[in-house]
């Protein structure tokens, strides 16, 4: 993120809350977690496949954020910083397990579906995509999740992944191609 980019209101609020957290304000921490945990858990579930593991990792992310609150500098968006920590934890988790993320998925339909048929169709499609994404190489999976799911800019993804923007673009392009190949039963051959 460029240094001279004006902060959005959310970023200003994040900065204010982080200062309070650094001062030991637990209510500010609660509010920060409340604001950021849904997208963080969503990203982590996309990475590891399991909601329980995603929650555990998200918990660790916020504990680390709290520990580093005094040292935190608002040069990047807090959401980007959180995902940066989360990705490092995901890499550690994979190393610890010695394998790739599970493909265990929650099959509960999302609330608000209009009919059982459409819910089943959506659920089927979601599962197919989640399984396909779980089969991607790590960099491709992270990159496609961050650009499509979290709607981050290439530059932010590059910062999170400690990689050049060109590599990020390559990973995203390859991820799309690989997903099309894995989902050829739904969309026909590429």
């Amino acid at each position: 993120m460029p240094q001279d980019e004006p902060l959005l209101p959310d970023d200003v609020e994040d900065k204010r809350l982080m200062l309070l957290v650094a001062g030991g304000d637990d209510d500010a921490l609660r509010l920060l977690v409340h604001r950021h945990h849904p997208r963080l858990v969503g990203y982590l579930r996309g990475e590891v496949g399991s909601l329980a593991t995603a929650e555990e990792l998200a918990m660790e992310v916020f504990i680390r954020l709290h520990r580093a609150a005094n040292r935190w500098r608002p040069e990047a968006k807090l959401s980007t910083y959180l995902i940066h920590i989360a990705r490092n934890l995901v890499l550690n988790e994979w190393r610890r397990r010695g394998r790739k993320p599970t493909t265990a998925l929650d099959s509960t339909p999302e609330p608000g579906d209009q009919s059982q048929t459409s819910a089943r169709r959506l659920n089927e499609l979601d599962e197919a995509f989640q399984r396909a994404i779980a089969q991607l190489p790590a960099e491709q999976r992270t990159a496609i999740l961050l650009v499509v799911q979290q709607e981050l800019a290439y530059e932010d993804i590059a910062e999170i992944m400690d990689a050049p923007v060109s590599s990020v673009k390559t990973w995203i392009h390859r991820a799309r191609a690989r997903l099309r190949e894995l989902l050829k039963d739904f969309y026909g051959p590429a």
Binding site: R39, R45, D126, F129, I144, L145, Q149
Partner: peptide, 8 residues
């Protein structure tokens, strides 16, 4: 598909 799982 990804957006539906974006926020939990």
């Amino acid at each position: 598909a990804l957006s539906r799982k974006a926020a939990v």
